[in-house]
């Protein structure tokens, strides 16, 4: 009798072990498409789904935790200045040596959309490899930095610079828009307020253009600087008439105006001179 029940139990235990192994395999396979962790409140929720714990309580506790997390995400979004719109994590490899996951993030920094993919290997410390960045911008001046960041796999440094960069772009856009609204007869933005160029044209001298060229440069190491130049474009006939060579010195004079007054005030005084002339 005893021997019989012992054999039965042994068989049962073996069958269960086989079943568990196959379920584990299935679970791991699923994790490859989306990794999920069941700890803490999530574990409770799981137990309650399988009828082992009171559901109402699990719902209210999980809800409280979710609310707390929503708050954390909002705070972290503000802190980083980065809005994430999608975020997927796939498990590539899991063993005693560590866990390797593929992360795909998409979002925006102010008006600048981005997508970043990388592999994260977690063992004693975390290591990022194979970072790939897609930035939706026409600004080529950031691309050497982007390549360097991909090479170095320096994720926070990339996002820190991206924030400085998009803030400078936003400054430029706001300034261009401000002057266009204030001096509509003089200012034109041929490629929109997001572009590098603002043209200043005196209404009575349609052929003469003072182009304000405002670029935002990023060094390979991630330093962001704005570079503003004034480029006069006039027909040859006007050039010939300019006996005191005012035009030739315009770029330089504007530069010294910039360093003494700052960007906005320098542009303002230039525009004031142009608009009072007519």
């Amino acid at each position: 009798m005893e021997a019989q029940s012992q054999a039965l139990l042994e068989a049962q235990s073996q069958a269960l072990q086989v079943e568990i192994a196959s379920l584990r395999g299935l679970h791991q396979h699923r994790e490859r498409s989306m990794a999920m962790q069941f700890e803490g409140r999530m574990q409770d929720a799981l137990l309650s789904l399988s009828g082992k714990l009171g559901t109402e309580e699990a719902v209210s506790k999980l809800r409280a935790e979710v609310e707390q997390m929503e708050e954390d995400v909002t705070r972290q979004t503000g802190m980083n200045g980065i809005r994430l719109t999608s975020c997927t994590v796939k498990t590539l490899h899991k063993s005693d040596r560590g866990l390797e996951q593929q992360h795909t993030l998409a979002g925006s920094c102010l008006d600048l959309p981005f997508q970043v993919e990388f592999k994260l290997f977690e063992a004693q410390n975390k290591t990022i490899t194979e970072m790939d960045i897609v930035l939706d911008t026409d600004d080529m001046l950031i691309s050497p930095f982007v390549s360097r960041a991909e090479e170095d796999c320096d994720l926070p440094q990339f996002f820190r610079t991206l924030r400085y960069f998009s803030e400078r772009l936003e400054d430029r856009r706001r300034t261009f828009q401000h002057f266009q609204e204030k001096y509509p007869s003089v200012v034109s933005l041929p490629e929109g307020s997001g572009s590098e160029v603002m043209n200043l044209i005196h209404p009575q001298l349609p052929g003469c253009v003072l182009a304000v060229h405002w670029s935002v440069a990023v060094s390979k190491e991630g330093d962001v600087t704005a570079q503003i130049h004034l480029l006069p474009r006039v027909p040859q006939t006007v050039h010939n008439m300019d006996s005191s060579r005012t035009l030739e010195g315009a770029a330089e004079s504007f530069h010294s105006l910039l360093t003494t007054l700052g960007t906005e005030a320098a542009l303002e005084s230039l525009l004031l001179a142009l608009s009072t002339g007519h």
Partner: peptide, 23 residues
């Protein structure tokens, strides 16, 4: 409960991503 779990999983991934990118 399932919907809460879904949101929980999303938020967890988002928070983790924010920690990684912001440092």
């Amino acid at each position: 409960l399932l919907q809460l779990m879904t949101r929980h999983a999303q938020l967890k991934d988002l928070l983790n991503a924010h920690h990684l990118i912001g440092g």
